[in-house]
């Protein structure tokens, strides 16, 4: 089957029930999305499918159809960071960093549909992304900073 990840088409030979996360990491070598729990309890594997956040451990690749996948690798580039990535750096959000690609993808998805979220809306959108380092206060600060950048664009 063919899938499109970060604007690149790939032909893969896998079982259709294989989780998208497995395909990304083990078949395509795209390792930004992390394996945390495998049951949609942690959010470390979050990617965008047609622009919306989705736990890639939960979507069978055969159910992707023509949908387009974007991972943290396709969100921005070192010389042209996504405004959420920029806010993450400016607020030094990450500690160990393992969950952060999922956090950033979830935050980017939130801001694409709600450019000026309240604290409660940020908490509601981000509560499914766990961080064992407890960087939650900095995550909220960075989401608000990214929202402010978005307002200025």
């Amino acid at each position: 089957m063919e899938i499109t990840v970060n604007d690149t088409s790939y032909t893969i030979d896998v079982e259709p029930e294989m989780p998208l996360l497995w395909v990304l990491r083990d078949e395509l070598g795209i390792t930004g999305p992390k394996y945390g729990c495998g049951i949609a309890q942690c959010g470390a594997c979050t990617v965008h499918v047609n622009g919306y956040a989705l736990r890639s451990c939960q979507l069978a690749v055969g159910d992707l159809g023509d949908s387009k996948v974007k991972t943290i690798e396709g969100l921005g580039a070192p010389d042209s960071l996504h405004f959420v990535q920029q806010a993450w750096i400016e607020n030094q959000v990450a500690q160990c960093g393992y969950c952060q690609s999922g956090q950033i993808m979830q935050a980017a998805s939130l801001l694409s549909t709600n450019p000026n979220p309240s604290d409660d809306q940020i908490d509601a959108a981000m509560s499914g992304n766990l961080c064992r380092c407890g960087t939650y206060p900095r995550i909220r600060t960075a989401v608000k900073a990214a929202a402010k950048k978005l307002q200025e664009v």
């Binding site: 259709p16 029930e17 949609a40 979050t46 919306y52 956040a53 989705l54 736990r55 939960q58 979507l59 069978a60 055969g62 159910d63 979830q106 939130l110 549909t113 709600n114 979220p117 809306q121 509601a124 959108a125 499914g128």
Partner: peptide
């Protein structure tokens, strides 16, 4: 969940023959 996080973020849509 369109206002914050879609139900389908985790409750993904499966094929009808799975």
């Amino acid at each position: 969940g369109a206002e914050t996080i879609l139900c389908s973020t985790c409750h993904t849509t499966k094929s009808d023959d799975w």
